[in-house]
Every structure is written in C-alpha cells, then in structure tokens.
C-alpha cells in the first residue's frame, strides 16, 4: 500500500481487475467505508459531521472511470467520500483525515468536507468551487485536461453555478458539470427547492445538456464516457443531470422521509443492481472488509492533529 501523498493508489482502485469487478469492489468499498464512519460516529470516535453517499456510489465509480485521472481535475462537495475514494483510492488517508489525524489527506485540517489530493478538491460550500473548476479547466486546457464538478439538486439554488456556466460557455472551458440529483436537499424535497428543469438549466448558456436516471454503474459509464470524450475534443463544457437516490440521511439521523418511501428506494441500491454482474462478489467484499479493517486500524494509531 502506498502512502505517497502524490499517488493514486492503483491497488485500492483495482485497476488491474476486469472493469466489472473493479466497479463492484469500488462500490462496496465506498459503502463499507461510509458505514464504518457512521459506526465510529455512534461510538463517539468521530468529531464533527459526515455526509455519506449511500445510494450514489455508482456516480463516483463510473465517472472516475471515464476521466483521465492523471490529468483531469475533480471538484467535489460536502458529499465527497465516494468521489475521493474512486479518484485516488487513498482510504487510509481519508480515514485519518476524518478521524482528525496528522496523517490525514489534509493533516486533519479539512476533515470530511474539505479534501485535496493531487487534482481533487472539495468544498463544504454549495457551488463554491464551480467557477474555480472553470478557471482550472481553462488553465490546463492546452494539456488536454478537463474539469469535472459534482453538484446536487440542492446546489441549483446557488447563483455561483450560473456565473460559472456563463464563464464556461463564453470562454469555452472543458468542464463536465454533474448534478447528482437525489431528490432531496438535506430535508427539503426537490419540489420545494428547484423550479423548472434541472436537465435544461445549462442549455440557455449554449451548453450541451444530458439526462440520465440510473444507479447502474455500467449505464452511467456508458453515458458519461462519450460526453467526456466530446468535452475533450471540442474544448466545450457539458451538463449532465444524473437522477440518483439517497438511501441514508443527509448527515446523521436527520432523515425526515417516510420509511416506506426509503424502502422503495432501496430497490435501486447500486450495489444490489450490480452484485449479480460479478463472478465472485464475496471475494471482492472480503477484500474490502479486510482492507478497511487494516487501514482504519492504522489510522487510529496515528497522532491526533493539533496546533503544536
């Protein structure tokens, strides 16, 4: 296992595995990682807050697969663990970060919502990095790199998003804007927070808009790959409205939705959708369970971050 701060951990990402095995292992890794975080929180071993991406793991797995991780830039948000793990596989650094350890990805400074690793950046402010994603894409355009920024349906209320869209189109920035629409912003259902169409929002800026309602990693990958290729070829931005599900609470214990409704959503659990497609899911799951136990153990032994 590599702890090099500059590295993408190809072992953890499973780059040598067949794609479907790799997808399932990453889906499972993200799920178990975040379940572990909730356990740690319940056991009072974790300070602050954490936003899990249960139900949305396929977005992270499929979109990272479509990007060129050696050059492309990823801009994430408060719900960023899945994006981070699929981007670089640095599970140990992420545990250490969230646990407030010196060895964390950001030395215990950023915590759950503010992560940086190579070309990965996340911010706890909705839409806060939208314009930065545009600027970075312009700065690296001549290197053949693109920016991918993740937002949610709740981000659609932020003016910064629309300023960024205007710039991206005017200046021809190669940016993939992804809206992970899980239908609820903290406790506010989309119907109360978003007017009009999410899919068509960027069209008025002269940006190609795409829509997909899926939790199937293969289907998402098949949709995203040509969009990414098109962005890279044309140097123009694109907009992807991705309807997904939120199986857990916003952060912890703050799910106000009807239990029956959430139970219905469980049928679209991306792990359930995908498990049948791999030959030996049990082996992939065991690898992940062992890996998580191992890196968590390591992280817990690390020095706690403090000022001195």
């Amino acid at each position: 296992m590599s702890h090099d701060l500059q590295e993408i951990d190809t072992d953890v990402l499973g780059v040598d595995l067949p794609r479907q095995d790799r997808f399932y292992r990453q889906l499972y890794l993200i799920r178990r990682f975040e379940q572990k975080l909730l356990e740690l929180f319940t056991n009072n071993m974790l300070a602050g807050t954490t936003h899990t991406s249960q139900g949305q793991e396929a977005n992270a797995v499929a979109i990272m697969e479509a990007l060129k991780l050696d050059r492309d830039m990823v801009w994430s948000n408060h719900r960023c663990h899945g994006h981070f793990l699929s981007y670089c596989g640095q599970s140990y650094r992420l545990f250490a970060e969230i646990l407030g350890r010196r060895t964390g990805a950001c030395g215990g400074r950023g915590g759950s919502q503010h992560l940086h690793w190579r070309n990965f950046y996340s911010s706890g402010i909705q839409g806060g990095f939208a314009a930065a994603a545009v600027g970075a894409a312009l700065a690296e355009k001549d290197k053949g790199a693109i920016s991918c920024i993740f937002m949610g349906d709740g981000t659609m209320g932020e003016g910064s998003v629309y300023e960024a869209l205007n710039f991206a189109s005017l200046l021809s920035a190669p940016v993939l804007f992804v809206v992970e629409d899980n239908g609820i912003a903290q406790t506010t259902p989309k119907e109360l927070g978003v007017a009009g169409s999410i899919t068509d929002r960027a069209r008025a800026f002269g940006i190609d808009c795409h829509h997909l309602a899926s939790t199937d990693a293969d289907e998402i990958f098949a949709t995203v790959s040509p969009i990414v290729d098109q962005i890279r070829t044309t140097g123009r931005p694109a907009w992807l409205h991705l309807e997904t599900v939120r199986l857990g609470p916003h952060s912890k214990g703050d799910d106000t939705r009807d239990e029956a409704f959430v139970a219905e959503l469980q049928k679209r659990d991306p792990l359930t959708v995908y498990r049948d497609r791999v030959g030996d899911p049990g082996a992939l799951e065991t690898w992940c369970d062992d890996h998580i136990a191992q890196v968590l153990d390591l992280a817990l032994k690390d020095d706690v971050a403090c000022a001195s």
Binding site: A131, G135, A136, A139, S147, E163, A164
Partner: peptide
Amino acid sequence: VITTPISEAGLVGVGLGMALRGR
C-alpha cells in the same frame, strides 16, 4: 487579458481556479 461578464463572484472564482493550477 480576459474581459469578463458582469460577474464579480464568477471572475474571482475563475481566477482562483487558474491560480490553483499555477497561474
């Protein structure tokens, strides 16, 4: 030199993104 729309948050954000990438 980039002339921008009337979009102060946007232009500072775009500038920040460029600066984060070494400009």
